[in-house]
Design a protein around this nucleic acid. Structure first.
Length: 424
RNA sequence: GGAGGGGUCGCUUAGUGGCCUAGAGCGGAAGUCUUGAAAACUUCUGUAGCGCAAGUUACCGUGAGUUCGAAUCUCACCCCCUCCGCCA
């Protein structure tokens, strides 16, 4: 969400952002609705004043008259407000000037690379084959139990998965992030707040509640399974005014993540690349509305994830995401992609985003400035620390040996208690 | 799941249709006094919208309703507390 006053004064900039991000929204309509709403508001407030005055005089006759008029205008006002609120949810954040302009990932720019791309003097296998041969991944059983994109991790595969997550969790906590176990089952307000609604609604699983009233209406509001811990971490501070001295707030979580992937039928159908449920360690920061500070934090968050990939000895590249690929709420977004040997290309495993005040306006998340005592919207950022099992693809494919074994990076020894996975 | 109690301006609370444009205490800020501090006293102290401003409107868990007029009455929902039952 953007400041309505900003939209009024800078409609050109907003229109450009809408075009660059490929969003379907008519700003002129929004401005017309806003103007109408303000006219209705003025009229309704005037009538309310008259009503209050008539009530004070016990003027029943005048009161009745004002009441009738107020009823019709109130309906118009409410309609305008609802329409405006709806349109406002689609207004994107203004992307940074150095973000590449383009309609999809093809316009993304590689900004840095690290590590050596592994070379092999034997025929390599992909993680699906490796997983089957070592009895650490079972996709057939996963499909039997959970349907398409289901999977089991077993034996060293299960241990390695937990090792990666625990290693990453310890790493992010060591950087001063407070560990949190958040809900993964949330209401729609939380997802509207984070910006996952209305844009990505079809990618979110909704939980059906069987309770019905006698009339057949649902008793409970629907709940949703989150695709990342970010919404729940942010929503902890929803409707709060935070003391400036408490900022920046740095929190992290490890949760199950659920994604329906309905927009990606037929995409990445093999193996563990695109699955409906996975585990992820995530970092979230809430800071002051200071762009320089937020950009510094953005770099720090990214460097932690890079540090992890270096310790795991996985070759990666950092990509600056284009306007069309970054999502409506983002000011800036970088992806980190890791080398996956059997795919023969880099695959995305991390997204690092600065949302500025776009989410906090939706979440009603403010801080009280120490010097002025005034309230300002916070800035929010989030970055992937560790997604598994996607990271296993690189670990298994890149580290495979001629004898069929898998070399484990040293950083994980304390968590795995083994240094290689050997064929049985 | 059953029974009961409750949700008021940061906190504690007053408030059963107009005197509530919500009172008091605590906390916070400024001032007076003081060498300094404390105490005392005085004043100020919520959020949001519209407006250049004066001002005005809304908000007493949320939503709807009754009324000329709702914190107060009615209905639905949400949340918290206590007890009982069931249960990881």
């Amino acid at each position: 969400m953007l400041d309505i006053d900003f939209i009024r004064k800078n409609s050109g900039i907003v229109k450009k952002a809408i075009e660059d991000k490929g969003i379907d929204l008519d700003i002129d309509e929004l401005l017309r609705v806003d103007q109408k709403r303000r006219q209705m508001l003025a009229k309704v407030e005037e009538l309310r004043q008259q009503r209050n005055e008539a009530a004070g005089r016990r003027d029943v006759e005048k009161g009745r008259e004002v009441k009738r008029e107020l009823e019709t205008w109130s309906i118009d006002l409410q309609e305008s407000e609802e329409r405006l609120t709806h349109l406002m949810l689609y207004v994107p954040n203004i992307p940074s000037v150095d973000s590449p302009v383009g309609k999809d990932a093809a316009a993304n720019q590689v900004v840095s690379k690290w590590g050596h791309i592994p070379e092999f003097d034997f025929e390599i296998k992909d993680h699906v084959e490796i997983g089957r041969e070592l009895d650490i991944i079972d996709l057939e059983a996963g499909t039997k139990t959970s349907g398409f994109r289901g999977y089991y991790l077993k034996n060293e595969g299960a241990t390695l998965h937990l090792a990666l997550l625990n290693y990453a969790f310890d790493k992010i906590v060591s950087k001063g992030f407070s560990p949190v176990i958040p809900p993964t089952l949330v209401n729609s307000r939380v997802l509207v707040g984070s910006g996952h609604f209305p844009f990505g609604k079809e990618n979110v699983y909704q939980i059906a509640n069987p309770g019905k009233l006698a009339t057949g209406e649902d008793i409970k509001n629907p709940l949703y399974l989150t695709g990342t811990s970010e919404p729940a971490l942010l929503a902890y501070y929803m409707d709060e005014v935070i003391e400036e001295t408490k900022l920046p707030i740095k929190v992290c979580a490890m949760t199950k993540c659920y994604r329906s992937e309905v927009g990606d039928y037929g995409k990445d159908t093999r193996g563990l690349y695109r699955v409906h449920e996975f585990d992820k360690v995530e970092q979230v920061v809430i800071c002051r509305d200071d762009l320089d500070e937020s950009e510094r934090i953005f770099q720090e968050m990214q460097s932690t994830t890079e540090e992890i990939l270096r310790e795991l000895e996985i070759a990666y590249q950092v990509v600056k995401t284009s306007t069309g690929d970054m999502g409506a709420g983002k000011y800036r977004m970088n992806d980190i992609e890791i080398w996956m040997a059997a795919r023969g290309k880099y695959g995305e495993i991390c997204s690092n985003s600065n949302l500025t005040d776009w989410q906090s306006r939706r979440l009603n998340l403010k801080y009280k400035s120490k010097s002025e005592g005034k309230n300002y919207y916070c800035y929010t950022l989030n970055t992937t620390v560790m997604p598994s099992p996607r990271i296993l693809i690189a670990l298994l494919e890149n580290n495979q040996q001629k004898d069929g074994s898998i070399r484990i990076p040293e950083a994980l020894y304390p968590y795995t208690n083994f240094s290689e996975i050997k064929p049985k």
